[in-house]
């Protein structure tokens, strides 16, 4: 799958040839199916011993234009879960409102919150699958980070097709190409993730965000990061990338044999 939200959910060009968009304009009663307009890029997340770290930058792009630079793409739910959104921002806002109403309905029962991160992930995946089956997809890829029914770290993804996936580390969009290999090195399997400290996990995720900023043309250096543990959610929404490496540009001269 191409990392650009504009290409999500479409057949691969290299496999099937260029996609014939006129296909969508064919006559028929249902003329839905849209395209993402204002988009957020990668979300990355990593499990550790006591919880999960999740991060996403604060940019909403309009094509190649870095149009909105203060868009928070991590959303907390019920003090035990964080949802990270990639893809279309208007659909993200729709899902945010949907989760608000879910939260209100949860408050009707006096037992307090019962939905954990696993419940939330299943709920979101069913919503996404329903919408794709109506040929009216919500153009998002989401990561759900939090704790499951046994208060153990939980991390899973769901996308615009309703596809779900779970792993000790996950990343959406460009992050799937660039961050995931780095995170897998730190936590190749569940056992390895269960030995990671919070500090190690934070460092790995921050390093991933940095690499993404270097190489993703739809990213920025301001980001949100959250740590979910039994103690609750620690969400920071105005972090700046630190310790970037640029000074080596000084050593680069020309494009081949040039020395000055």
């Amino acid at each position: 799958m191409n990392h650009l939200p504009q290409a999500w959910g479409r057949p691969r060009d290299d496999y099937y040839g260029a996609y014939d968009a006129s296909y969508f304009q064919s006559n028929g009663p249902n003329q839905h199916t849209q395209q993402p307009i204002v988009t957020g890029t990668s979300v990355v997340a990593l499990k550790f011993k006591d919880g999960v770290v999740i991060a996403a930058d604060n940019l909403a792009s309009y094509g190649s234009l870095a149009r909105f630079t203060d868009v928070k793409r991590l959303r907390t739910f019920a003090d035990t879960s964080v949802v990270g959104f990639g893809g279309d921002v208007s659909d993200m806002q729709y899902l945010d409102r949907l989760l608000n109403s879910l939260d209100t309905e949860e408050a009707y029962t006096s037992s307090g919150h019962t939905l954990n991160a696993r419940n939330l992930h299943i709920y979101l995946s069913k919503v996404l699958y329903k919408r794709r089956s109506d040929f009216n997809p919500l153009w998002n890829q989401v990561l759900v980070a939090g704790l499951d029914e046994e208060k153990k770290p939980f991390l899973a993804s769901a996308d615009l097709l309703g596809t779900t996936f779970s792993a000790p580390s996950l990343a959406t969009g460009f992050g799937a190409h660039l961050a995931q290999p780095l995170l897998r090195k730190v936590a190749p399997d569940e056992e390895a993730a269960a030995t990671l400290s919070k500090e190690q996990a934070l460092e790995a995720v921050k390093e991933s965000m940095k690499v993404l900023f270097y190489r993703d043309a739809r990213s920025m250096d301001k980001y949100s990061i959250a740590v979910v543990t039994k103690e609750g959610i620690d969400l920071k929404e105005n972090e700046k990338l630190e310790n970037q490496s640029w000074a080596f540009a000084d050593q680069i001269r020309g494009y081949g044999t040039q020395v000055n």
Partner: peptide
């Protein structure tokens, strides 16, 4: 590919 089809930005 990014903005190829009609009706796009």
């Amino acid at each position: 590919m990014e903005f190829g089809t009609t009706g796009m930005l």
